[in-house]
Simulated assay, not measured.
Amino acid sequence: MARVFITGSTDGLGLAAAQSLVAQGHEVVIHARSKSRAAEARLARDGGVNVVTGDLSSLAETLSLADQVNSIGPMDAVIHNAGIYTTPERGSTAEGHATILAVNTLAPYILTCLIDRPQRLVYLSSGLHRGGEGSLADIDWKRRSWDAAKAYAESKLHVAAIAAALARKWPATICSAVDPGWVRTRMGGQAAPVDLDTGQRTQSWLAVTEEAEAKVSGGYWHNRTRQTPAHEVTDVEFQEKLLGMLHDLTGIALP
């Protein structure tokens, strides 16, 4: 039995992955954004589930979340699932991008730095990462005209590059990135062609399987098949520049 922590796991792909892993007999730690969402998760949970809370758009709450996870004990795997596409409720484009950057890029980096290192790390990317174009010149969108789709694509490029960098830096940890496809979630919409169960299978499999192909670090996966990501993902210079920027933005160094 493995112990797996999944961010953003009270609904959508994260919840589907949690349910799949619990059904297989694994222990799952669910992440809820707020105490009210945590209460809902506790009411709906099956056996083998712990719930931790923290809003990933908040640095303080993300730091607290890492402490909560570490207090439970060592994780065998962490699935960095949480992500957002656009935030119209935030009002201004500056606030919207700050939230996308915080949740999709900074939070996975911070949690990776601060959660006791597991045996496996899985990062939810997207096929849209290829539209990120590798620009790190204005990572926080202070100079460019706002483009939510581009910001999302860049954030998914970031997490794929983080996974590849960690595969290089941490050889004892199996690090992978996953494109789950366009899935019928609240973010993906009901017109999406991929159902939740199909969308969660690859990351759940990577988190716990003993199959040899899944234990080769550094892969970018879709439908349990390794694929070739955008060239920036495996570019060491790009990886190092990105990690340096994330260090500067958060004040937290990668161990």
Rank of each mutant, 00 (worst) to 15 (best):
R3Y: 11
T10Q: 01
G12D: 07
L13F: 07
L15N: 01
L15K: 11
A16I: 08
A17G: 01
Q19T: 07
A23H: 11
A23W: 13
Q24S: 13
E27Y: 13
E27N: 07
E27I: 06
V28S: 10
H31W: 12
S34K: 01
K35T: 09
K35W: 06
S36H: 08
S36E: 14
R37F: 11
R37K: 15
A38Y: 11
A39C: 00
E40C: 03
A44S: 13
D46V: 13
G47M: 05
G47F: 13
N50R: 12
V51F: 10
T53P: 03
T53Q: 06
T53R: 02
G54R: 02
G54A: 04
D55F: 00
A60Q: 13
T62S: 12
T62A: 12
L63P: 02
L65N: 06
L65C: 12
A66N: 00
D67R: 13
I72V: 12
G73N: 08
D76Y: 09
V78G: 00
V78S: 00
I79V: 13
H80T: 05
N81H: 05
A82E: 09
T86R: 12
P88L: 11
R90S: 11
G91S: 15
S92D: 07
T93E: 15
A94S: 15
E95Y: 02
L101V: 02
L101P: 00
P108R: 02
P108C: 01
I110S: 03
L111K: 08
L111V: 12
L111M: 10
I115S: 03
D116T: 10
L121A: 09
S126A: 12
S126T: 10
G131Q: 15
G131S: 14
G132P: 11
S135I: 05
L136P: 03
D138V: 09
I139N: 02
D140L: 04
S145P: 09
W146K: 00
A151V: 10
Y152F: 15
E154M: 15
K156W: 13
K156Q: 12
V159R: 02
A160T: 01
A163I: 04
A164V: 01
A165R: 08
A165T: 06
K169G: 02
A172Q: 15
T173V: 15
S176I: 02
P180T: 01
R184A: 08
A191T: 13
A191L: 12
P193Y: 09
V194A: 03
D195L: 09
L196M: 14
D197S: 12
G199I: 09
R201N: 04
T202L: 11
Q203L: 13
S204Q: 08
W205A: 01
L206T: 04
T209C: 07
E211Y: 05
E213P: 00
A214W: 04
A214Q: 02
S217H: 05
G218E: 06
Y220V: 04
Q227K: 14
Q227E: 15
T228A: 11
P229N: 03
A230D: 10
E237M: 00
Q239T: 05
Q239M: 10
E240A: 06
K241T: 14
L242M: 05
L243Y: 06
L243W: 04
L243Q: 01
D248K: 14
L249P: 00
L249R: 11
A253K: 15
L254I: 10
L254R: 11
P255E: 05
